[in-house]
Amino acid sequence: MLEQVVRLGRAGIGIIERLGRGHLLLWHILGGLGALSVRPGLLIRQIYSVGVHSMLIVGVSGTFVGMVLALQGFYILSQFGAEQTLGVMVAASLVRELGPVVAALLFAGRVGSALTAEIGLMKATEQLSGLEMMAVNPVKRVLTPRFLAGFISMPLLAALFSALGVLGGFFVGVGLLGVDEGAFWSQMQAKIDLHEDVYNGVIKSLVFGVVCTWIALFQGYDATPTSEGVSRATTRTVVHSSLAVLGLDFVLTALMFGD
């Protein structure tokens, strides 16, 4: 019994220690932002590997999600004779929720795991140590550009997801199911609010970008430098980021649309 309590305490202390190390790392990462403006080349390379490589998966997923939304929505809305509002339904669900959230989940799987593996392997092969001994700060040199790249790419990817989703919904709704084109757009434009919906969606994706990239970098940087440790850290990245995204989505939604 006592042993269990001790174990619980140890686990608690472990979690708090990790949280502390995580926040310290974030602080150091942010401290490197100033130096990055001198070397924009580093950032461009990272946006390439973070953003460009995710364009395809995010774009394709967005298109299909939009198409499915239109298909499902049409059958439900047509029962009330409200097919005209299909555009609203598709756009609202994409811009408010699915765009930021699904793009972030894809981002965690596609980019987060890759970042963790990359940083973890750099640690395991002593590359980070090597940089340190070359008097180069590995956090500023390696982590900061990746962090900023994630921060910049995430909202762009989410926007890409939503926009292609709306077009996919348009294609299915108007092209295949015969919803009136004018009604599709005008209802959407009348009901979707720039501040309430679009801006809040962008804010969500910015938050998700920070959290996903941060978790991925921390897991890689904090990984046990063995192949097993890195593979575990990669799994943890995907699990933790996905949970964080879904949990934060609830909090942010409650804050933004709650009143």
């Binding site: 750099m122 092969t125 002593e126 590359q127 140590s129 090597g130 940089l131 340190e132 001994m133 070359m134 008097a135």
Partner: peptide
């Protein structure tokens, strides 16, 4: 000080 120290790691630690 580290700039005046060289270190050769076991694995080489080259940037891959």
């Amino acid at each position: 000080l580290r700039m005046r120290m060289g270190m050769l790691f076991q694995s080489g630690a080259l940037l891959t």
